[in-house]
Design a protein around this nucleic acid. Sequence first.
DNA 1: AAAATACATAAGCACACACTTATGCGATTT
DNA 2: AAATCGCATAAGTGTGTGCTTATGTATTTT
Lengths: 104, 104
Amino acid sequence: MIEHDIFRAMADPTRRTIFEKLANGSMNASTLRQGMDISQPAMSQHLAVLRAAKLVREQKEGRFVNYEVDPDGLALIAQWLAKYRAYWPARIDALKLLLKDMDQ
Amino acid sequence: MIEHDIFRAMADPTRRTIFEKLANGSMNASTLRQGMDISQPAMSQHLAVLRAAKLVREQKEGRFVNYEVDPDGLALIAQWLAKYRAYWPARIDALKLLLKDMDQ
DNA sequence: AAAATACATAAGCACACACTTATGCGATTT
DNA sequence: AAATCGCATAAGTGTGTGCTTATGTATTTT
């Protein structure tokens, strides 16, 4: 169940930080570690979890592995969220922004 | 951090089932248990976690406690998701549905 | 008022999970 | 070709989490 993988992956604050970093630009695993006080194996394990959830994807470049946000995972979250749109309050600013964004 | 509470709450499959049940109509804790093979304390604990994450809210009615979906939690997920809208592929059907839904 | 009902909370236990150190394996550098 | 670098994986360990049983507290029923 990929949906379970996604929520489980995002339940960890370190992985959310990693994901947010990648959302601001793809980079390799070593660069990701900078300013994060995390061991190399720990980073590697976190990336494996995010990969399994289709939240990030890799691109090998020589001995480096470049990571980037995988839209598939975000799409699945959006689909999950859409199931409950009956409960979204109309007032939410974020959704209005989204609307504008999708309109163009 | 409520965002952390939300992802942690949704990381458990039993809680996702409970949430989905409530999305189809509010009910009390005992009714929620029907067909779920879960003890009364376990249900109570799950509801406490969902409550802390603002994913459900309670309404006391005599000795019953009626639970319903809390839009606040869903709104926070939507806001979180909106941060990464740059990565949403335009093709996602769910988002198109959403667009239609918000347009009316 | 005594019993029953709906729910919450406490305490203890088994398992999942995030970390560590150690090691392996390609690719690059010297 | 030897050393180094970037990354992954294995194995072990402590902590978090979801379960259980036991018990408490209102509220309703009889």
